[in-house]
Design a binder for these strands. Structure first.
Length: 262
DNA sequence: ATGGTCGAAAGTCGA
């Protein structure tokens, strides 16, 4: 069977119900993984997702900031959450799919503006988060999918201007190195770059601050879908829905939809 | 080099 799994940093699920509806209207999605829902679990619009055909909701929300959720058409089993931030922030949620595959939805800390652990504790927290993820990743034994907003654009072609962004948090060499260590710890397959090989540019995020995001096209590939090597043969496609950046009152991130033959 | 815009919230802060 084919399973289509979407990942989207929605930048407030309550502010953008129209976007969720449009995505699900235009695309076949079986499981929707959201990041930055920005609401606690009691405020999550469960009824709206139920009406859209997603009655199975697994939430890890938080008031105001962060927050992740997995909405599904089919029953999935909750799996223990991880706290890679080590402070209780809602940045990871996980479920077991039919067939036993573990689906991990993660929202990696953005890391602040200054790429220096001493001057900016948020940057250190981001690096520490990824180091804890790497420890976790190295000991995984089940077939797994790891997706979400990683807040790192690893390759030169994952940003609009490699040299200009070398000192910009999300593309610094230390972040790229630590993300590579995470990837190597389990042999994760970067499906985005499997489907759109370098040096083709590929972006998933465009700042709100540009006058015209499409004309300037100063994007970054911050969102990713990875799978463990034992699932590599099941990957059918991954679509990056760039036009969604131009929808009404958009998120600054666009949805990714990965399709697997399981 | 700087500022530019969002959302949540009612200050600014984080992104």
């Amino acid at each position: 069977m084919s399973l289509r799994i979407a990942s989207w940093n929605i930048n407030s699920v309550r502010a953008r119900p129209h976007l969720v509806e449009r995505l699900l209207d235009e695309q076949r999605v079986d499981i929707l993984c959201l990041q930055e829902t920005k609401c606690d679990d009691n405020s999550f619009p469960l009824a709206a997702f139920g009406r859209l055909g997603f009655p199975h909701a697994h939430l890890a929300g938080q008031r105001m900031h962060h927050g992740v959720a997995i909405l599904s058409r089919i029953p999935v089993e909750p799996v223990a959450r991880e706290d890679w931030q080590a402070n209780g922030e809602a940045r990871h949620i996980s479920v077991r799919l039919p067939g036993g595959i573990i689906l991990n939805n993660v929202y990696v800390p953005a890391g602040g503006d200054i790429p220096d652990r001493d001057a900016n504790p948020k940057f250190g927290q981001k690096l520490d988060f990824l180091a804890r993820m790497t420890d976790w990743s190295g000991s995984l034994s089940e077939p797994s999918i790891l997706l979400g907003d990683f807040n790192i654009a690893p390759h030169p072609e994952d940003v609009w201007n490699h040299k200009a962004l070398l000192d910009v948090v999300s593309h610094t060499p230390v972040e790229v190195e630590i993300l590579k260590a995470l990837q190597d710890s389990h042999g994760w397959m970067d499906i985005g770059r499997h489907v759109v090989p370098r040096p083709e540019p590929l972006f998933t995020w465009w700042s709100y601050r540009a006058r015209d995001w499409a004309a300037s096209n100063r994007g970054r590939r911050l969102d990713h879908v990875w799978c463990s090597p034992d699932l590599a043969g099941t990957v059918r496609s991954l679509d990056t829905l760039v036009p969604a950046r131009g929808w009404e009152r958009p998120s600054d991130h666009v949805p990714l939809i990965a399709e697997f033959d399981l």
